[in-house]
Design a protein around this nucleic acid. Structure first.
Length: 290
DNA sequence: CTCCTGACCTGAGTGC
DNA sequence: TGCACTCAGGTCAGGA
Protein backbone atom coordinates (compact mmCIF):
# COMPACT_ATOMS: atom_id res chain seq x y z
CA UNK A 1 0.00 0.00 0.00
CA UNK A 2 1.77 2.89 1.30
CA UNK A 3 4.45 4.55 -0.69
CA UNK A 4 6.43 7.60 0.32
CA UNK A 5 3.55 10.11 0.23
CA UNK A 6 1.29 7.92 2.35
CA UNK A 7 4.08 7.23 4.84
CA UNK A 8 4.89 10.93 4.94
CA UNK A 9 1.24 11.68 5.67
CA UNK A 10 1.35 9.21 8.56
CA UNK A 11 4.57 10.80 9.86
CA UNK A 12 3.10 14.28 9.77
CA UNK A 13 0.04 13.17 11.70
CA UNK A 14 2.14 11.37 14.31
CA UNK A 15 4.44 14.36 14.62
CA UNK A 16 1.57 16.79 15.07
CA UNK A 17 -0.22 14.74 17.68
CA UNK A 18 2.29 12.75 19.70
CA UNK A 19 5.59 14.63 19.79
CA UNK A 20 6.57 15.17 23.41
CA UNK A 21 4.05 12.68 24.71
CA UNK A 22 4.94 9.78 26.95
CA UNK A 23 4.06 6.18 26.12
CA UNK A 24 2.14 4.94 29.15
CA UNK A 25 1.05 1.56 27.86
CA UNK A 26 1.89 -0.76 25.01
CA UNK A 27 -0.06 -3.66 23.60
CA UNK A 28 0.86 -5.90 20.71
CA UNK A 29 -0.95 -8.75 19.04
CA UNK A 30 1.95 -11.16 19.38
CA UNK A 31 1.40 -12.15 15.76
CA UNK A 32 4.34 -12.39 13.45
CA UNK A 33 4.29 -9.68 10.84
CA UNK A 34 6.90 -9.75 8.09
CA UNK A 35 9.18 -10.67 10.96
CA UNK A 36 8.27 -11.17 14.63
CA UNK A 37 7.42 -8.09 16.67
CA UNK A 38 10.51 -7.47 18.87
CA UNK A 39 10.44 -9.35 22.14
CA UNK A 40 9.86 -7.21 25.19
CA UNK A 41 8.78 -4.34 22.99
CA UNK A 42 6.46 -3.19 25.73
CA UNK A 43 9.16 -3.21 28.40
CA UNK A 44 11.58 -1.44 26.11
CA UNK A 45 9.37 1.48 25.14
CA UNK A 46 6.96 1.85 28.05
CA UNK A 47 7.61 5.13 29.81
CA UNK A 48 9.50 6.52 26.83
CA UNK A 49 8.90 10.03 25.55
CA UNK A 50 8.36 10.43 21.82
CA UNK A 51 10.97 13.01 20.90
CA UNK A 52 10.60 12.99 17.15
CA UNK A 53 9.08 11.36 14.09
CA UNK A 54 11.17 10.94 10.97
CA UNK A 55 10.81 9.08 7.68
CA UNK A 56 13.33 7.11 5.68
CA UNK A 57 12.00 5.70 2.41
CA UNK A 58 8.81 3.90 3.34
CA UNK A 59 9.76 3.55 7.00
CA UNK A 60 8.38 5.60 9.87
CA UNK A 61 11.07 6.28 12.47
CA UNK A 62 9.87 7.10 15.97
CA UNK A 63 12.56 8.47 18.28
CA UNK A 64 12.11 7.52 21.91
CA UNK A 65 13.86 8.90 24.96
CA UNK A 66 13.96 6.46 27.82
CA UNK A 67 15.19 7.54 31.24
CA UNK A 68 18.51 6.05 32.35
CA UNK A 69 18.91 4.11 29.12
CA UNK A 70 20.12 4.95 25.64
CA UNK A 71 17.52 6.51 23.38
CA UNK A 72 15.77 4.22 20.91
CA UNK A 73 14.35 4.47 17.45
CA UNK A 74 11.38 2.34 16.48
CA UNK A 75 11.15 1.50 12.77
CA UNK A 76 7.69 0.85 11.37
CA UNK A 77 6.99 -0.41 7.88
CA UNK A 78 3.41 -0.52 6.62
CA UNK A 79 3.86 -3.22 3.99
CA UNK A 80 1.03 -3.40 1.46
CA UNK A 81 -1.96 -3.02 3.72
CA UNK A 82 -0.73 -1.26 6.85
CA UNK A 83 -2.27 1.87 8.28
CA UNK A 84 -2.02 3.93 11.44
CA UNK A 85 -4.99 5.20 13.43
CA UNK A 86 -4.55 8.04 15.86
CA UNK A 87 -7.37 8.90 18.20
CA UNK A 88 -7.33 11.53 20.92
CA UNK A 89 -7.91 10.15 24.38
CA UNK A 90 -10.45 11.98 26.42
CA UNK A 91 -10.11 12.12 30.17
CA UNK A 92 -13.81 12.65 30.74
CA UNK A 93 -14.55 9.51 28.81
CA UNK A 94 -12.29 7.52 31.06
CA UNK A 95 -9.46 7.63 28.55
CA UNK A 96 -10.98 5.00 26.40
CA UNK A 97 -10.78 5.93 22.77
CA UNK A 98 -12.09 2.84 21.06
CA UNK A 99 -11.80 -0.88 21.07
CA UNK A 100 -9.34 -3.08 19.31
CA UNK A 101 -10.16 -3.96 15.73
CA UNK A 102 -9.29 -6.95 13.59
CA UNK A 103 -5.66 -6.89 12.46
CA UNK A 104 -4.51 -4.35 15.01
CA UNK A 105 -0.93 -5.27 15.88
CA UNK A 106 0.39 -2.47 18.03
CA UNK A 107 -1.39 -0.04 20.31
CA UNK A 108 0.46 2.75 22.07
CA UNK A 109 -1.36 4.81 24.67
CA UNK A 110 0.30 8.15 25.26
CA UNK A 111 -0.11 10.98 27.73
CA UNK A 112 0.94 14.57 27.49
CA UNK A 113 2.94 14.81 30.68
CA UNK A 114 3.81 18.49 30.58
CA UNK A 115 0.26 19.72 30.38
CA UNK A 116 -1.29 16.96 32.42
CA UNK A 117 -3.55 16.25 29.51
CA UNK A 118 -4.66 12.94 28.15
CA UNK A 119 -2.85 11.79 25.08
CA UNK A 120 -3.60 9.48 22.20
CA UNK A 121 -4.10 5.97 21.05
CA UNK A 122 -1.73 5.14 18.23
CA UNK A 123 -2.72 1.91 16.50
CA UNK A 124 -0.90 0.02 13.78
CA UNK A 125 -3.30 -2.11 11.75
CA UNK A 126 -2.12 -4.45 9.00
CA UNK A 127 -4.41 -7.16 7.59
CA UNK A 128 -1.83 -8.82 5.37
CA UNK A 129 1.02 -8.50 7.87
CA UNK A 130 3.59 -7.62 5.23
CA UNK A 131 4.62 -4.72 7.42
CA UNK A 132 6.86 -4.90 10.46
CA UNK A 133 8.26 -3.26 13.56
CA UNK A 134 11.91 -3.09 14.60
CA UNK A 135 13.78 -1.38 17.37
CA UNK A 136 17.34 -0.10 17.54
CA UNK A 137 19.42 2.41 19.43
CA UNK A 138 18.90 5.91 18.19
CA UNK A 139 21.69 6.75 15.79
CA UNK A 140 22.18 3.12 14.78
CA UNK A 141 19.24 3.12 12.39
CA UNK A 142 21.47 4.03 9.42
CA UNK A 143 23.34 0.77 9.97
CA UNK A 144 20.22 -1.27 10.55
CA UNK A 145 19.88 -4.09 8.00
CA UNK A 146 16.51 -2.73 6.93
CA UNK A 147 17.89 0.70 6.12
CA UNK A 148 21.57 0.38 5.37
CA UNK A 149 21.23 -0.45 1.68
CA UNK A 150 18.52 2.10 1.05
CA UNK A 151 19.05 4.61 -1.74
CA UNK A 152 18.68 8.37 -1.77
CA UNK A 153 15.67 10.29 -0.53
CA UNK A 154 13.85 11.55 -3.61
CA UNK A 155 12.88 14.75 -1.81
CA UNK A 156 16.45 15.31 -0.57
CA UNK A 157 19.37 17.27 -1.99
CA UNK A 158 20.94 14.32 -3.80
CA UNK A 159 17.98 14.00 -6.16
CA UNK A 160 18.66 15.48 -9.57
CA UNK A 161 19.01 14.59 -13.22
CA UNK A 162 22.71 13.65 -13.14
CA UNK A 163 22.12 11.30 -10.22
CA UNK A 164 19.26 9.55 -12.00
CA UNK A 165 21.26 9.38 -15.21
CA UNK A 166 24.26 7.77 -13.54
CA UNK A 167 22.28 5.41 -11.34
CA UNK A 168 20.22 4.12 -14.25
CA UNK A 169 23.14 3.75 -16.63
CA UNK A 170 24.25 0.64 -14.76
CA UNK A 171 20.87 -1.11 -14.76
CA UNK A 172 19.89 -3.79 -17.24
CA UNK A 173 16.21 -3.78 -16.26
CA UNK A 174 13.36 -1.59 -17.38
CA UNK A 175 13.17 1.91 -15.98
CA UNK A 176 9.92 0.92 -14.25
CA UNK A 177 11.56 -1.94 -12.37
CA UNK A 178 14.55 0.24 -11.51
CA UNK A 179 12.30 2.89 -9.97
CA UNK A 180 10.89 0.24 -7.64
CA UNK A 181 14.40 -0.68 -6.48
CA UNK A 182 14.67 0.90 -3.04
CA UNK A 183 18.48 0.70 -3.19
CA UNK A 184 18.53 3.41 -5.84
CA UNK A 185 15.77 5.82 -4.85
CA UNK A 186 13.87 5.12 -1.64
CA UNK A 187 10.12 5.41 -1.29
CA UNK A 188 8.77 5.00 -4.82
CA UNK A 189 6.24 2.21 -5.23
CA UNK A 190 4.02 0.88 -7.97
CA UNK A 191 1.65 3.86 -8.19
CA UNK A 192 4.19 6.67 -8.25
CA UNK A 193 6.59 4.81 -10.53
CA UNK A 194 3.87 4.74 -13.20
CA UNK A 195 2.77 8.30 -12.48
CA UNK A 196 6.29 9.74 -12.55
CA UNK A 197 7.06 8.03 -15.86
CA UNK A 198 3.87 9.44 -17.34
CA UNK A 199 4.74 12.95 -16.23
CA UNK A 200 8.24 12.56 -17.64
CA UNK A 201 6.96 11.14 -20.94
CA UNK A 202 9.07 7.99 -20.58
CA UNK A 203 7.83 4.51 -21.44
CA UNK A 204 8.00 2.07 -18.52
CA UNK A 205 9.40 -0.49 -20.99
CA UNK A 206 12.45 1.57 -21.80
CA UNK A 207 15.68 0.05 -20.53
CA UNK A 208 17.01 2.00 -17.56
CA UNK A 209 20.43 2.26 -19.24
CA UNK A 210 18.80 4.02 -22.17
CA UNK A 211 17.73 6.97 -20.08
CA UNK A 212 19.89 9.79 -21.35
CA UNK A 213 20.70 13.00 -19.50
CA UNK A 214 17.70 14.80 -20.89
CA UNK A 215 15.17 12.13 -19.94
CA UNK A 216 16.88 11.69 -16.57
CA UNK A 217 16.38 15.37 -15.85
CA UNK A 218 12.71 15.18 -16.72
CA UNK A 219 12.32 12.04 -14.64
CA UNK A 220 13.99 13.54 -11.58
CA UNK A 221 11.63 16.50 -11.79
CA UNK A 222 8.61 14.30 -12.38
CA UNK A 223 9.38 12.14 -9.36
CA UNK A 224 9.77 15.13 -7.06
CA UNK A 225 6.64 16.80 -8.42
CA UNK A 226 4.38 13.78 -8.21
CA UNK A 227 5.52 12.92 -4.68
CA UNK A 228 5.01 16.49 -3.50
CA UNK A 229 1.61 16.75 -5.15
CA UNK A 230 0.53 13.48 -3.55
CA UNK A 231 1.72 14.55 -0.10
CA UNK A 232 -0.21 17.79 -0.47
CA UNK A 233 -3.35 15.73 -1.17
CA UNK A 234 -2.84 13.41 1.78
CA UNK A 235 -1.67 10.50 -0.35
CA UNK A 236 -3.61 8.06 -2.50
CA UNK A 237 -6.45 6.05 -0.98
CA UNK A 238 -7.24 2.89 -2.88
CA UNK A 239 -8.33 -0.07 -0.79
CA UNK A 240 -6.91 -0.01 2.71
CA UNK A 241 -5.17 3.25 3.03
CA UNK A 242 -6.61 6.05 5.09
CA UNK A 243 -4.83 8.84 6.86
CA UNK A 244 -4.31 8.43 10.59
CA UNK A 245 -7.40 10.46 11.42
CA UNK A 246 -9.54 8.33 9.12
CA UNK A 247 -9.60 10.81 6.24
CA UNK A 248 -8.93 9.45 2.78
CA UNK A 249 -6.12 10.68 0.57
CA UNK A 250 -7.40 12.56 -2.43
CA UNK A 251 -4.52 12.04 -4.84
CA UNK A 252 -6.44 9.09 -6.26
CA UNK A 253 -8.45 11.69 -8.20
CA UNK A 254 -5.29 13.03 -9.80
CA UNK A 255 -3.83 9.75 -10.99
CA UNK A 256 -3.10 10.07 -14.70
CA UNK A 257 -2.45 6.44 -15.53
CA UNK A 258 -2.40 4.13 -12.48
CA UNK A 259 -5.50 1.95 -12.44
CA UNK A 260 -6.81 3.56 -15.65
CA UNK A 261 -6.36 0.72 -18.13
CA UNK A 262 -8.53 1.36 -21.17
CA UNK A 263 -9.43 4.88 -20.09
CA UNK A 264 -8.62 8.07 -21.95
CA UNK A 265 -5.23 9.69 -21.63
CA UNK A 266 -5.71 13.13 -20.15
CA UNK A 267 -2.89 14.56 -22.25
CA UNK A 268 -3.42 13.18 -25.76
CA UNK A 269 -6.86 11.59 -25.68
CA UNK A 270 -5.41 8.20 -26.55
CA UNK A 271 -5.86 5.09 -24.49
CA UNK A 272 -4.05 4.22 -21.26
CA UNK A 273 -2.66 0.70 -21.30
CA UNK A 274 -1.71 -1.80 -18.65
CA UNK A 275 1.18 -4.18 -19.05
CA UNK A 276 2.87 -6.54 -16.62
CA UNK A 277 6.52 -6.03 -15.75
CA UNK A 278 8.48 -8.01 -13.18
CA UNK A 279 5.21 -9.45 -11.93
CA UNK A 280 3.59 -6.08 -11.36
CA UNK A 281 1.13 -3.96 -13.27
CA UNK A 282 2.43 -0.90 -15.09
CA UNK A 283 0.17 1.71 -16.60
CA UNK A 284 1.15 4.09 -19.35
CA UNK A 285 0.09 5.98 -22.43
CA UNK A 286 1.96 4.48 -25.40
CA UNK A 287 1.71 7.68 -27.43
CA UNK A 288 2.78 10.14 -24.71
CA UNK A 289 5.50 7.95 -23.29
CA UNK A 290 8.56 6.94 -25.27
C1' DC B 1 27.43 -9.57 -8.61
C1' DT B 2 22.40 -8.88 -11.33
C1' DC B 3 17.86 -10.04 -12.50
C1' DC B 4 13.51 -12.58 -12.17
C1' DT B 5 10.11 -15.55 -9.95
C1' DG B 6 7.56 -17.06 -6.25
C1' DA B 7 6.33 -16.79 -1.54
C1' DC B 8 4.54 -14.45 2.26
C1' DC B 9 -0.89 -12.98 3.98
C1' DT B 10 -5.89 -11.41 3.96
C1' DG B 11 -9.82 -9.45 1.73
C1' DA B 12 -12.31 -7.59 -2.20
C1' DG B 13 -14.02 -8.30 -6.54
C1' DT B 14 -15.51 -11.20 -10.60
C1' DG B 15 -17.55 -14.85 -13.15
C1' DC B 16 -19.93 -19.15 -13.19
C1' DT C 1 -25.78 -17.69 -2.44
C1' DG C 2 -21.63 -20.17 -2.86
C1' DC C 3 -17.40 -21.30 -4.73
C1' DA C 4 -13.10 -20.82 -7.32
C1' DC C 5 -10.27 -17.78 -8.93
C1' DT C 6 -7.60 -13.33 -9.57
C1' DC C 7 -5.64 -9.33 -7.90
C1' DA C 8 -3.73 -5.77 -4.59
C1' DG C 9 0.07 0.27 -2.60
C1' DG C 10 6.04 -4.39 -0.70
C1' DT C 11 9.96 -7.03 0.07
C1' DC C 12 13.09 -10.76 0.16
C1' DA C 13 15.08 -15.58 -0.36
C1' DG C 14 16.25 -18.52 -4.01
C1' DG C 15 17.70 -19.89 -8.41
C1' DA C 16 19.36 -18.87 -13.13
Amino acid sequence: MPELPEVETVCQALRDTTTGEKIVSVWNSGKTMRWPIPENLGEQISGAVITGIRRRGKYVLMDLEVTERPSLTMLIHLGMSGSVRITALNREEDKRAEGEKPHDHLVLMTRDGTKGKSGHHVVLNDPRRFGGIALCRKGDEIHHPLLKTMGIEPLGNAMNGPFVHEAMAAKKTSIKAALLDQRIIAGIGNIYASEALFRAGISPRRQARNIGPERAGRLAHAIVDVLKDAIADGGTSLRDHVQPGGEIGYFVQRLDVYGRDGETCRRCGGQVRMIRQAGRASFYCPSCQR
